[in-house]
Design a binder for these strands. Structure first.
Lengths: 216, 216
DNA sequence: AATATAACCGGCGATATTGCCTGTTTTTTG
DNA sequence: CAAAAAACAGGCAATATCGCCGGTTATATT
C-alpha cells in the first residue's frame, strides 16, 4: 500500500534509475544540492536559501549549479517535490516499523505518535519554512500549493484505504487527522515558548481526544 | 482587569502621553512606521520587511527613517512590542464586548470563538511572521523570544485571575488554552490547503473538546 | 581516435538593501 | 529675535545576491 502512496508523490525524473555514469553522477549532484538547499531552509529559512550557500554546502561552484538548475526557482521546485516525497516516505517507514514492533495497542495512538515524530524531522522543518514562505511569496505559492494539495489528497485517500475497519466513519477519521495535523504544527511553532512539559500534556490530551473520537 | 494586562505589555516609551508638538509628531510618525512595517510583514514576510518599503508606505524619506530608527533591528524590536500589545488589546476588546453582548452561553465557547477571531487579525499575521522568522534568525530571536515569553506569562496569570470559578482546576484551564492556541495557529497555516469546511469542522470539534474538559 | 556532449569552474554586470553622511526646514529655547 | 535642537530629505559607498557567459575537463558517441 505504501508503495502506491510513494509512487503518487514521486518527483518527476526519478521513476527510472539511471544507468549511464554521467546521468548517475548528475542525479547524485542534484540530490546533494537539494539536500543542501533543505539544510539552508532549516538553518536560515526561505530567505536563507541562497545559491551561494547551496553551492558552498554542496561543494560545487556556482557555475555548476547553474548547469543543473539554471534558476533559483527551479531548484526550489525540486526541493518542494523532494520534501513532500521524503516526508511521506519517512512517516510510512517509521509508522510501519512501529506497527510491526508493537504486538498490540491502539492503532490511533501509534499513528498519532508516529505523526508527532514525523513533524520533528529535518524534512518537516524544511516543509514548514516553505509553507510559511508560500503564504507571502506568490512565485513560491504558485509551485508549492498544487503539490501541497496533491499531497493532502493522496494522504486522505490512502488513509481511507489503509484502515478499512473505520471506513464507515471516514469523516471522523479525516477530522481526527486534521486536528492532529494542525495541533502538531502549532506545537512545533510554539515549542520555544511553551517548553516540553506543556507540549507533552497537550499531546497526551490530543491522544485521549482522538481515541475517544473513534469509540463514539 | 484588562487594564493590568495591557499595562504589563505596554511598549516602552508609551506610558506618558507627549505634550510637545514635536514629541507628538515624532510619536505619530513612529507609529505610522511601525504600522507600515506590520503591513510589510503581512504582505511579504520577514524578508519583505525592508527599509525602503516601510519608508515608502509611511510616506517619508529614508533619511527621516534613519532619524527615528537608526537601524533596521531597532524598528523590528518596536514592531515586536507593538504587535504583542495590540494582539492582547484587540483580543480583550473583542472578548469583553462579546461577553457583554451575549446574556448567557458557555464562557469557554465565547472565549474560544474570540481567540479564533483574534488569530485572523493583521496583528496576528504579523506576529506569526515574526515568530516563524525568529526560529531561524538568531538576531531576531534574541529580541522576540523574551517578549513572547513575557506575553505568555501575562496571559496565563491573568487568565487565572479572570476566571476565579475555575481556579481549582487551573491546570486544566492552561491545558485547554494551550490546545486552542496551537490548533488555531495550525489551522491558520493550513487554511490554503484545508479549506473553510474542514476548518469549521475542526473548530467545532475543538469547541466540543474544550467544553468537555471543564466539565470533567 | 576524433568529435560531440555533458559536468564543472570562475568571473562579470545588474539589482537591491543597508548604514551613514551632508544639507534643509520647522520647532523649541534662551 | 537669535541660537539650538529636532524632524526630514536625498545621495553615496559597501555588501550581497542573482542570472549569465566563456572557458576547461571528463565522458560518451561513431
Amino acid at each position: 500500500m505504501q508503495k502506491r502512496m510513494l509512487a503518487a508523490m514521486l518527483p518527476v525524473g526519478q521513476s527510472d534509475q539511471p544507468v549511464r555514469w554521467q546521468q548517475q553522477k548528475s542525479a547524485q549532484t542534484r540530490l546533494r544540492m537539494i539536500i543542501a538547499a533543505m539544510d539552508c531552509l532549516v538553518a536560515g529559512g526561505y530567505g536563507g536559501l541562497t545559491t551561494q550557500q547551496v553551492a558552498e554546502r554542496t561543494g560545487i561552484s556556482r557555475g555548476a549549479m547553474h548547469h543543473h538548475f539554471p534558476t533559483r526557482l527551479e531548484l526550489v521546485t525540486a526541493v518542494i517535490d523532494h520534501v513532500f516525497y521524503e516526508r511521506m516516505r519517512l512517516f510510512l517507514e517509521d509508522y510501519l516499523s512501529e506497527l510491526g514492533r508493537s504486538t498490540e495497542g491502539e492503532l490511533v495512538e501509534i499513528a498519532t505518535a508516529a505523526h508527532w515524530r514525523s513533524v520533528q524531522t529535518r524534512e518537516y522543518a524544511a516543509y514548514l519554512e516553505l509553507a510559511v514562505a508560500a503564504r507571502t511569496d506568490p512565485e513560491l505559492q504558485q509551485f508549492f500549493e498544487p503539490v501541497a494539495r496533491r499531497y493532502d489528497e493522496v494522504w486522505i485517500s490512502e488513509m481511507i484505504e489503509s484502515f478499512p475497519q473505520w471506513q464507515a466513519q471516514w469523516e471522523t477519521m479525516k477530522l481526527a487527522n486534521d486536528l492532529a495535523m494542525v495541533a502538531h504544527m502549532g506545537l512545533l511553532l510554539n515549542r520555544p515558548v511553551m517548553g516540553e512539559d506543556r507540549i507533552d500534556r497537550v499531546n497526551a490530551l490530543l491522544s485521549r481526544v482522538l481515541r475517544g473520537l473513534y469509540q463514539s
